[in-house]
Computed example of a mutant assay.
Amino acid sequence: MNIQHNPAVADLTTFPISTRWPAKHPDRIQLYSYPTPNGVKISIALEELGLPYEAHKVTLADADVKSPEFLSLNPNNKIPAIIDPDGPDGVPLPLFESGAILLYLADKTGKLIGKTARDRQIVTQWLMFQMGGVGPMFGQFGYFYAYGGKAIEDARPLERYRNEVRRLLAVLDGQLSERDWIAGDFSIADIAIAPWLRSLETGYQALDAIGWSDFPNVAAYRERFLARPAVQRGLNMPPRD
């Protein structure tokens, strides 16, 4: 999909979110996010693609994500979301859902999505693997292991999600046994998956709990990902402080 570009600067003041998070650079992609595993997917992609953007910190507090201004952009009250002032047909495009945004940015630039139509489907397959499996299951495991759910005496929820995390890690470890990146070349699939691998340590302090050493290919993959300069920049956008 080729997206046409319009050099005219869009009027973003027509978007209600601009009343709370005004654009200083309305010619750039506006990113409304927080540096969680889902949030940094988009800042990393923007850094990797070299697209100019302006990052607005939207915390996970109800005062931000459930504010009328943010809900006007994402009625599902979750970060990240974007407005591209240079959207299809020259019309600004608001988007939410990290997977949808990754696909849009890849299609907009023709990068990080493979070189052929076949490549694109393989990349999309692994992106959906993250969206439907890694993200939800890792998140549930983190809740029961490190956050509010750890107070629940019944051990079955934690064990269920721990086993599912290990199963998903085994799938990834097998896929990475003969390649550096999950779908061949570095792609949006890696940008979707690797931040969740990082969260097992930085968010949940759970590497020992899930038997991280059992997945050497995944461990090496995470380190390759984190060594990329664009990834390092994107991990801290927007800054927490």
Rank of each mutant, 00 (worst) to 15 (best):
M1D: 12
M1W: 11
N2Y: 12
N2G: 15
H5C: 14
P7G: 13
A8F: 12
A8S: 13
V9W: 08
A10H: 06
L12T: 04
T13P: 11
T13Q: 14
T14Q: 15
P16H: 07
I17M: 08
T19N: 14
T19L: 14
R20K: 08
P22W: 04
A23V: 03
A23T: 01
K24W: 10
P26S: 09
L31I: 01
Y32E: 05
T36I: 06
T36E: 03
P37R: 02
I42A: 11
I42Y: 04
S43W: 03
I44D: 02
E47Y: 05
E47T: 06
E47G: 09
L51V: 07
E54C: 05
E54Y: 07
E54S: 06
V58H: 01
V58I: 11
T59N: 14
L60D: 10
S67W: 09
P68Q: 12
E69M: 09
F70L: 11
F70M: 10
F70C: 12
N77V: 13
I79V: 09
A81F: 01
I82E: 03
I82V: 00
I83H: 04
D89F: 10
V91S: 12
V91M: 13
P92S: 07
L93C: 01
L93P: 00
L93S: 06
P94I: 10
E97H: 12
S98R: 02
G99C: 07
A100E: 07
L102H: 00
L105M: 06
L105Q: 06
D107T: 11
T109S: 13
G110T: 07
G110K: 08
K111G: 02
L112N: 06
I113P: 10
I113M: 14
A117F: 14
R118V: 15
R120K: 15
I122P: 09
V123I: 06
V123M: 05
M128Q: 14
M128K: 09
F129T: 01
F129D: 02
M131A: 13
G133S: 01
V134Y: 09
P136N: 11
P136G: 07
F138G: 02
F138L: 08
F138D: 10
Q140S: 13
F141T: 05
F144I: 06
Y147Q: 15
G149Y: 06
K150G: 10
A155W: 09
R156E: 15
L158R: 07
N163R: 15
R167E: 02
L168V: 05
A170S: 09
V171T: 04
S177K: 02
R179L: 01
W181Q: 04
W181N: 00
I182Q: 00
D185F: 00
F186C: 01
S187K: 03
S187Y: 01
I191D: 02
A192Q: 04
A192E: 03
L197P: 03
R198Q: 13
R198N: 14
T202C: 12
G203A: 15
G203K: 12
Y204D: 04
Q205C: 11
Q205L: 12
L207I: 11
L207T: 12
D208S: 15
G211F: 01
W212P: 05
W212Y: 06
D214Y: 07
P216G: 07
P216M: 04
V218Q: 00
R224W: 00
R224P: 00
F225I: 04
F225V: 08
L226D: 01
A230D: 07
V231M: 01
V231R: 00
Q232Y: 00
L235T: 02
N236E: 14
N236C: 12
P238R: 08
P238E: 07
R240E: 14
